[in-house]
């Protein structure tokens, strides 16, 4: 699957918010935050087929 852009003009604002959310956290806390984010975003997507495709796509070319 090829993921087209859906953030449009908000891309930089989103990225800034994501990085700000992690600011000041320990690495372990950041892992926890990321896990929560994945679960919450998956629920918002709410489409198992799409989620499975995303898992497969994200696993491609995973560095060693």
């Amino acid at each position: 699957m090829i993921l087209q852009d859906k953030l449009g003009e908000e891309a930089d604002t989103f990225y800034k918010a994501l990085i700000s959310a992690h600011e000041g956290l320990t690495e372990a806390q950041s892992h926890t935050l990321n896990a929560r984010l994945v679960l919450m975003m998956a629920n918002q997507i709410g489409d198992l087929g799409m989620l499975t495709d995303i898992f497969e796509t994200a696993l491609q070319d995973l560095p060693d």
């Binding site: 993921l3 852009d5 953030l7 449009g8």
Partner: peptide, 9 residues
Amino acid sequence: HPFARKLIN
């Protein structure tokens, strides 16, 4: 992925 290109700054 085009979406990630939009995030490169």
